[in-house]
Amino acid sequence: MVSPGAKKQKADERAKYQRLATSIVPKPPLVRNAIVAFVVGGLICMVGQGVMNVFTSRGMSQDEAVAPTLATMILIGAVLTGLSAYHPIGEFAGAGAAIPITGFANTVVAAAMDFKREGYILGMGAKMFIIAGPVLVYGILSGVLVALIRWLYRG
């Protein structure tokens, strides 16, 4: 049985050490990260806009062009991941590469590539959404909640 005093002493020691560690651990360069994320994320969105303009110039309406634009961006993200080119972009740009839909495609394809070695059923099929899964679950859940609030509010 550990006495309460010893327990407290251990907790104090840990807290003291964690303060020391925090003081030595380098801080993430937040300003740099924010700027790079803005620029790279913005560039990806510009590509998206360019793709959309191609579709609208071929006679599609703005609404009609949304789905094929997203599909194209997902394809680009997936292919870049397959060519091992998206990982370095992510390493450089952080959220700038993760937030656009290309980043979402990356999470699915990266997991698929990794788990393919354990087979198509128990590996790839089962674990493809290991990173993207939570995004889908909570994305759909928050969609339902927001729709519910709107429905209650507007009747």
Partner: peptide, 13 residues
């Protein structure tokens, strides 16, 4: 950690 090709930024540690 994560799949190899995942877009992840390295932490400072």
């Amino acid at each position: 950690r994560y799949p190899i090709e995942l877009n992840i930024m390295r932490k400072t540690t």
